[in-house]
């Protein structure tokens, strides 16, 4: 490609702008978490830390309930992700491949789940969970997260499945593979990028979910990070160092999951299959 210098410069400026836009708050949080309190609240903010301390992290892990919340959140988010994938993959394949009555209607209906703001279903859901004894238990949050992540996940995976050339599946049929084997041996490897995206989506939504976690969980020992952490920070006086350290740690699992399953985002996976 032969781009002019001006265009190149404009592109670089564009990228730089967005990187700054997205990256600057993160840098602020991460760099702030290792500053001593005086520097954090200094009148002229420092872009680069002038001091170094781990005192905020020490306080976070030794003197607060943060580790408990962290573990709770990890349990909820990881279980929600795994469960979402376990349900969404077969469901998407069924919507994609099987012909059954009312398939089209059902397929459109599941997306209707997003027509209602979560706050609307909160009260009836609380009543429901109270009846079956799920209130103040982590499975309640897992169920809610999965229920909200599923429709979009199914919808997304189905379009990834639709991107696999029909002949590949037909070749597998001719080779004598049963439907579930085709799903496991042919389709899942081919839609790995889609599965990775859905996994990340499910994890991040569960990791950051606040409304349900704040209502369905009553005891402090069962709180997840978003709710629990907001309690740590304090109602009348804000410990900025603690806040920044907690926020930094909360980012870590999300970054880790991106690094881990983000590998699945390999493009051109079906390259060479058909042409």
């Amino acid at each position: 490609m032969n781009r002019s210098l001006g265009l190149n410069a404009a592109l670089v400026a564009c990228i730089a702008f967005f990187v700054t836009l997205v990256g600057l708050p993160f840098w602020w949080v991460v760099s702030g978490s290792i500053k001593i309190p005086q520097e954090i609240i200094a009148r002229t903010p420092t872009m680069f830390p002038q001091s170094f301390t781990l005192q905020h992290y020490q306080k976070l892990f030794d003197a607060s309930a943060y580790p408990v919340y962290l573990v709770n959140s990890l349990i909820v988010a990881a279980s929600s992700t795994v469960l979402t994938l376990l349900l969404a993959i077969p469901a998407a394949y069924a919507f994609f491949r099987l012909v059954f009555p009312a398939r089209g209607v059902l397929y459109r209906t599941i997306l209707l789940a997003y027509a209602f703001p979560s706050i609307v279903v909160l009260i009836p859901l609380f009543g429901l969970f109270a009846k079956v004894g799920l209130v103040d238990r982590l499975p309640a949050l897992i169920i809610v997260n999965v229920a909200f992540a599923l429709p979009f996940s199914i919808w997304m995976l189905r379009s990834f499945l639709a991107g696999v050339p029909k002949e590949i599946e037909e070749a597998a049929v001719m080779d004598g593979a049963p439907t579930l084997t085709i799903l496991r041996r042919i389709m899942i490897p081919l839609i790995a990028p889609g599965i990775a995206s859905v996994g990340i989506y499910a994890f991040v939504t569960a990791w950051t979910e606040y409304v349900f976690a704040s209502v369905l969980i009553l005891s402090d020992a069962k709180r997840t990070l978003p709710v629990g952490f907001s309690g740590i920070i304090g109602q009348y006086q804000i410990d900025w160092g603690l806040l920044l350290a907690g926020a930094t740690v909360a980012i870590v699992p999300v970054v880790a999951i991106f690094a881990l399953i983000g590998r699945g985002f390999v493009s051109g996976l079906t390259e060479g299959a058909v042409k």
């Binding site: 050339p165 002949e167 590949i168 037909e170 070749a171 597998a172 049929v173 001719m174 080779d175 004598g176 593979a177 042919i186 490897p189 081919l190 996976l269 079906t270 390259e271 060479g272 299959a273 058909v274 042409k275």
Partner: peptide
């Protein structure tokens, strides 16, 4: 069933399993 007919098919698009 296709697999039980004793038939093999070669597709125009090859339809190889890419992975």
């Amino acid at each position: 069933d296709p697999a039980k007919r004793g038939i093999a098919m070669v597709f125009q698009t090859y339809a190889l399993y890419p992975h």
